[in-house]
Protein backbone atom coordinates (compact mmCIF):
# COMPACT_ATOMS: atom_id res chain seq x y z
CA UNK A 1 0.00 0.00 0.00
CA UNK A 2 1.17 3.51 -0.70
CA UNK A 3 2.04 5.94 2.13
CA UNK A 4 -0.84 8.15 1.01
CA UNK A 5 -3.34 5.38 1.59
CA UNK A 6 -1.92 4.76 5.06
CA UNK A 7 -2.21 8.46 5.84
CA UNK A 8 -5.84 8.46 4.63
CA UNK A 9 -6.64 5.43 6.78
CA UNK A 10 -5.00 7.03 9.83
CA UNK A 11 -6.91 10.26 9.15
CA UNK A 12 -10.28 8.53 9.08
CA UNK A 13 -9.43 6.32 12.07
CA UNK A 14 -8.48 9.39 14.13
CA UNK A 15 -11.65 11.15 13.01
CA UNK A 16 -13.77 8.23 14.20
CA UNK A 17 -11.84 8.02 17.49
CA UNK A 18 -12.31 11.77 18.05
CA UNK A 19 -16.09 11.55 17.56
CA UNK A 20 -16.55 8.34 19.56
CA UNK A 21 -14.38 9.55 22.45
CA UNK A 22 -16.28 12.82 22.43
CA UNK A 23 -19.56 10.91 22.66
CA UNK A 24 -18.11 8.74 25.45
CA UNK A 25 -17.81 11.86 27.61
CA UNK A 26 -21.59 11.73 28.09
CA UNK A 27 -21.85 7.97 28.19
CA UNK A 28 -19.32 7.01 30.88
CA UNK A 29 -20.25 7.32 34.53
CA UNK A 30 -17.25 8.83 36.28
CA UNK A 31 -15.69 12.27 36.24
CA UNK A 32 -12.22 10.89 35.59
CA UNK A 33 -13.35 8.77 32.65
CA UNK A 34 -15.36 11.65 31.18
CA UNK A 35 -12.42 14.03 31.44
CA UNK A 36 -9.92 11.64 29.92
CA UNK A 37 -12.35 10.59 27.18
CA UNK A 38 -12.37 14.27 26.22
CA UNK A 39 -8.56 14.30 26.37
CA UNK A 40 -8.46 11.28 24.03
CA UNK A 41 -10.81 13.07 21.64
CA UNK A 42 -8.51 16.10 21.56
CA UNK A 43 -5.42 13.94 21.04
CA UNK A 44 -7.11 12.36 18.02
CA UNK A 45 -7.86 15.87 16.70
CA UNK A 46 -4.19 16.73 17.23
CA UNK A 47 -3.14 13.74 15.14
CA UNK A 48 -5.64 14.75 12.44
CA UNK A 49 -3.97 18.17 12.30
CA UNK A 50 -0.61 16.43 12.03
CA UNK A 51 -1.89 14.41 9.09
CA UNK A 52 -3.10 17.62 7.45
CA UNK A 53 0.56 18.71 7.38
CA UNK A 54 0.33 21.05 10.37
CA UNK A 55 2.85 19.25 12.58
CA UNK A 56 3.37 22.18 14.93
CA UNK A 57 -0.33 22.86 15.47
CA UNK A 58 -0.98 19.15 16.01
CA UNK A 59 1.74 18.87 18.67
CA UNK A 60 0.55 22.02 20.41
CA UNK A 61 -3.08 20.80 20.47
CA UNK A 62 -1.96 17.51 22.07
CA UNK A 63 0.29 19.32 24.56
CA UNK A 64 -2.29 21.91 25.62
CA UNK A 65 -5.26 19.58 25.84
CA UNK A 66 -3.61 16.78 27.81
CA UNK A 67 -2.30 19.35 30.29
CA UNK A 68 -5.66 21.08 30.51
CA UNK A 69 -7.63 17.87 31.01
CA UNK A 70 -5.19 16.65 33.69
CA UNK A 71 -5.84 19.82 35.67
CA UNK A 72 -9.55 19.83 34.91
CA UNK A 73 -9.93 16.28 36.23
CA UNK A 74 -8.75 17.48 39.63
CA UNK A 75 -11.29 20.31 39.64
CA UNK A 76 -14.05 17.94 38.58
CA UNK A 77 -13.18 15.46 41.30
CA UNK A 78 -12.53 17.93 44.11
CA UNK A 79 -15.52 20.21 43.58
CA UNK A 80 -18.15 17.84 42.23
CA UNK A 81 -18.56 15.41 45.11
CA UNK A 82 -17.18 12.27 43.55
CA UNK A 83 -15.54 9.17 44.84
CA UNK A 84 -12.67 7.63 42.99
CA UNK A 85 -14.92 4.62 42.59
CA UNK A 86 -16.92 4.15 39.43
CA UNK A 87 -20.22 5.82 40.15
CA UNK A 88 -23.43 5.20 38.27
CA UNK A 89 -23.85 8.88 37.56
CA UNK A 90 -25.36 10.67 34.60
CA UNK A 91 -23.11 13.17 32.85
CA UNK A 92 -26.07 14.67 30.98
CA UNK A 93 -28.34 17.59 31.78
CA UNK A 94 -31.47 18.47 29.72
CA UNK A 95 -31.14 15.20 27.86
CA UNK A 96 -33.44 15.80 24.87
CA UNK A 97 -32.46 19.38 24.15
CA UNK A 98 -28.78 18.45 24.41
CA UNK A 99 -29.11 15.56 21.96
CA UNK A 100 -31.13 17.72 19.57
CA UNK A 101 -28.63 20.57 19.67
CA UNK A 102 -25.68 18.19 19.31
CA UNK A 103 -27.08 16.26 16.34
CA UNK A 104 -28.28 19.50 14.70
CA UNK A 105 -24.88 21.15 15.02
CA UNK A 106 -23.12 18.04 13.72
CA UNK A 107 -25.41 17.81 10.69
CA UNK A 108 -25.10 21.52 9.94
CA UNK A 109 -21.29 21.54 10.12
CA UNK A 110 -20.97 18.21 8.33
CA UNK A 111 -23.27 19.38 5.54
CA UNK A 112 -21.26 22.59 5.29
CA UNK A 113 -18.01 20.65 4.98
CA UNK A 114 -19.42 18.34 2.31
CA UNK A 115 -21.54 20.78 0.30
CA UNK A 116 -19.36 23.87 0.16
CA UNK A 117 -17.51 24.07 -3.18
CA UNK A 118 -13.90 23.87 -2.00
CA UNK A 119 -11.45 25.84 -4.18
CA UNK A 120 -8.87 24.02 -6.28
CA UNK A 121 -5.28 24.20 -5.05
CA UNK A 122 -3.33 26.93 -6.81
CA UNK A 123 0.43 26.90 -6.36
CA UNK A 124 2.36 24.82 -3.82
CA UNK A 125 2.23 24.97 0.00
CA UNK A 126 4.82 27.12 1.72
CA UNK A 127 7.92 25.16 2.80
CA UNK A 128 7.36 26.38 6.37
CA UNK A 129 3.61 25.85 6.81
CA UNK A 130 3.67 26.87 10.48
CA UNK A 131 5.14 30.29 9.76
CA UNK A 132 2.82 30.69 6.78
CA UNK A 133 -0.23 29.88 8.91
CA UNK A 134 0.89 32.35 11.57
CA UNK A 135 1.36 35.07 8.96
CA UNK A 136 -2.01 34.30 7.42
CA UNK A 137 -3.97 34.44 10.68
CA UNK A 138 -2.06 37.18 12.51
CA UNK A 139 -0.62 39.27 9.72
CA UNK A 140 0.53 42.62 11.00
CA UNK A 141 -0.81 41.91 14.51
CA UNK A 142 1.86 39.33 15.23
CA UNK A 143 4.05 41.65 17.28
CA UNK A 144 1.04 42.84 19.31
CA UNK A 145 0.01 39.25 20.13
CA UNK A 146 3.57 38.29 21.05
CA UNK A 147 3.73 41.23 23.43
CA UNK A 148 0.29 40.60 24.93
CA UNK A 149 0.85 36.94 25.85
CA UNK A 150 3.47 37.50 28.60
CA UNK A 151 1.31 40.32 29.98
CA UNK A 152 -1.64 37.92 30.13
CA UNK A 153 0.41 35.27 31.95
CA UNK A 154 1.70 37.84 34.43
CA UNK A 155 -1.88 39.08 35.00
CA UNK A 156 -3.15 35.58 35.71
CA UNK A 157 -0.32 34.81 38.14
CA UNK A 158 -0.66 38.17 39.88
CA UNK A 159 -4.44 37.75 40.09
CA UNK A 160 -4.08 34.39 41.81
CA UNK A 161 -1.47 35.76 44.21
CA UNK A 162 -3.62 38.76 45.17
CA UNK A 163 -6.85 36.81 45.59
CA UNK A 164 -5.38 34.34 48.08
CA UNK A 165 -4.46 36.04 51.30
CA UNK A 166 -2.48 33.07 52.54
CA UNK A 167 -2.02 30.61 49.73
CA UNK A 168 -2.90 26.94 49.65
CA UNK A 169 0.02 26.16 51.92
CA UNK A 170 0.80 27.76 55.22
CA UNK A 171 3.52 30.38 55.19
CA UNK A 172 4.60 30.37 58.80
CA UNK A 173 1.67 32.41 60.14
CA UNK A 174 0.34 29.56 62.28
CA UNK A 175 -0.64 30.58 65.78
Amino acid sequence: MSPDLWADLAFWACGVVAVLAGAAVFYVDSMARATYALALSFVAVGVVLLLLGQAYLGAVVVLMMVMEMAVMAVYMVMFMGMNPALMPMSMVHSHRAAIGAGVGAFLLLGAGALLVPWPERRGAPDPDVTAALGEATMGSHMLVMVAISPVMVATIVAGVVLSLHRGRYDRGDRP
Binding site: A39, A59, V60, L63, V66, M67, A70
Partner: peptide
Protein backbone atom coordinates in the same frame (compact mmCIF):
# COMPACT_ATOMS: atom_id res chain seq x y z
CA UNK B 1 7.10 18.60 25.28
CA UNK B 2 3.71 17.14 24.34
CA UNK B 3 4.89 13.66 25.35
CA UNK B 4 6.25 14.75 28.70
CA UNK B 5 2.87 16.30 29.47
CA UNK B 6 1.37 12.81 29.08
CA UNK B 7 3.19 11.98 32.30
CA UNK B 8 0.74 14.37 34.02
CA UNK B 9 -2.18 12.28 32.87
Amino acid sequence: NALDVFAWA
